[in-house]
Structure formats: C-alpha cells, structure tokens
Nucleic acid binder design. Structure first.
Lengths: 186, 186
DNA sequence: GTGGTATGAATGAAAG
DNA sequence: CTTTCATTCATACCAC
C-alpha cells in the first residue's frame, strides 16, 4: 500500500506501552498512524471523564497543543479520539445492556460444567456512569458552544430507534427459535 | 484501557479442536478471552458463508443469544468475530490479488486513496443551527487569540500546526508546567 | 522453552 | 453521529 499519508513518522516513541514515564521506546517504531503516549491517553481520558465529549475546534487545538508536549500529535488525532471514544462508549453500553437482557436463558449448559457466569459485571472499568458533570473549568467556555451537549441531547429524546431497521429474511428467521433448527435459515 | 475483560470463562469446553461434533475437545481452556466452541464457530462460519458479513446490531444480538446455548458468549464476541473474519479474508484476498498478475496487465488494486488530511474534520461536525452564540460566560481569557475566528476556523483545522502558536491563553493557565495540570485551562 | 500461526480484542482513521 | 476499514496488540495453541 502506498504511503503518502501526509506522513511522517519521525516519532520513534510510544506504543501503547505503559510506563507513565515517557514515550518510551516501543516495539513499534512503526508509524503511519498516531500512537498516543500513555500520558496523552491519560489526559484525554481524564478530560472525557470530566464531561468533555465533543470538544470545539478551539478546545481541540488547545488540547492538541498541550499534548504535543508528550509527543507528536495533531489536532485531528484529538478529534478522532473523542469521536471514537464517545461512539465506543455508547456502543459498548448498548451492547452490554442487550447482553444482559437476553442473557437470561442459558443457565444450563448441561455439558460438563455449569457456568454460572456472572452476568452482572455491569460496570465498565471506566466509570462511565458519570452523567454530564462539567467541571468548572470547562464552563469557562461559552455554555452554548459545543462544549456540552445540552442542545444535542434534546434531539435524542426519541430513543435511537435503531432497532427497527430492515427485516430481512435472516433476522426474521432468527426470531422464533426452534433451537438447533434455528439456523435452518442458512 | 477502559475495557473490562468481562469475564471469566469457567467453561472448560471448546477449543478450536476439530471435531465438528460436540464441544468436547477440552484442552482445558484457560480464560481471559472468549474461546468459541466448535459449534459456535461452525454457526458463525456458516453465517459468514451464507453471505452475512456485517450483521447489524440486532442481528448480532440474536446470533449471540442463540450461540449462548453452546457456551458463554457476548455480543461483543460476535461483533469482533465478523469483523476479524471479514478483514482477514479480505486481507488474504488482497495479498493474492496483488500477485495475481498472471497476465501482463498490472491492474494493481491500489484502492488506497491517499489519505492526506481529514477532510471530514472540517468542523461541520454537528452544528445544530446555532442562531447566534452569545457568550455569556465570563471569559477569563479571550478565546480568539488569533483574531475573531471562533467561527471561521472551524473550517480549517487540519493543518499541521499542532505546535502551539498561541501563548496568551495558555500562559494564564500554567505558571509553571506541572505537566498534567496544564490542561486546567480548559 | 522457543517460535510460529491462528485468532480474539483494541483502536486509529475514515466513510457514510 | 454511526458504522466500517485497516492495522496492531495480545493470547491461545501447536510444533519442535
């Protein structure tokens, strides 16, 4: 594949290594895409946990500037990071709750061991439960900018009806289960 | 980072052994990550072969629910399975087609468009028709360090100017850089 | 014990 | 915002 990814990969550092220390030498001197330092991740996560979800352009620039202290970073990285983090947070949340709902009928495997898999580990390792707590420093920005989503939330009153998409034969066939034959739609 | 391993698998069954029959194999799978049962793999593979590539969320949920009969499984696992399977098939395929040039035509694929800058990140993100943004919060420091581009610079962010160029606002926040704490300016 | 391979999991980047 | 793609990390398992 061609790499004209605008790129440079001068930074030989970092990997998702671990040491909080520096961007240490990493396995992957491989470049091509941003590989955040632990500190960078920490700061970003911290900001996210503080309630920042969709930083404005200004905020992105500032964050990026600050994080460049720890290593190479661009604004778009920050942008993507927040987008991904937010999206995956939601996705995960959705998926987990679905799992817990549908999870209620397989307690007996009758194979060689009953599992008793605890299906209530519900918490994220990450305390995602923090509502929209906005730290006061965040409020230094205009409240009606995009710093908080009081406005966008209003559009989300209706549940993401996301569940009523297409009803293909496939999904139809999976609905009523004759157990093993449930896969007969194949 | 923010992923809980979600679990432990007490299931001693399954292995990617090969008998398509029972989930007998049982090398005594340790755990840490999902280890699909033979039946689970079989079903997933069949689904894949029947044309299913990227199941929607509800499909994933149904599949996962069905497969939970054979052992512990989560929606996440189904999601990842399809993701990986598709990607790896594509990868193999790509590798094959690259040196597929049996004839003298070099129609290499090169479906990699050059990714220069995130053209999507032009700031159009989600402006929900903000009539006017009234800054009613006190500005401890001017946001428009470079001028009045609070609105306009949304359309240019992808420069490689990630190096800090403003110092006015920042100098406020950091008397002396305690590193992490420098982001308090947000 | 070491290395290779298959594959689960994660995530940056981008497309839709 | 949601979904998909591509790459990489991590781990289980097998072979030697």
């Amino acid at each position: 594949m061609d790499e004209n990814m605008s790129g440079f990969c001068i930074k030989a550092a970092s990997v998702r290594d671990n040491n909080g220390g520096g961007n240490g030498g990493g396995t992957g001197t491989k470049c091509g895409r941003w590989n955040p330092t632990s500190e960078q991740v920490k700061v970003l996560t911290d900001l996210f946990r503080s309630g920042l979800r969709t930083p404005s352009t200004d905020q992105i620039q500032k964050i990026s500037s600050q994080l460049s202290f720890y290593g190479k970073i661009e604004s778009k990285n920050v942008f993507y990071w927040f987008q991904n983090h937010k999206a995956r947070e939601r996705h995960k949340r959705r998926r987990v709750s679905i799992d817990h709902d549908t999870d209620s009928h397989h307690h007996f495997i009758l194979r060689n061991q009953n599992i008793s898999s605890p299906k209530h580990y519900n918490g994220e390792v990450n305390e995602v439960s923090e509502p929209e707590r906005v730290i006061e420093t965040l409020q230094l920005f205009p409240l009606n900018s995009f710093g908080d989503q009081t406005e966008t939330d209003r559009f989300r009153l209706h549940a993401n009806d996301y569940q009523c998409k297409e009803t293909t034969a496939l999904s139809y066939a999976m609905d009523h289960p004759p157990l093993d034959l449930r896969l007969s739609f194949l």
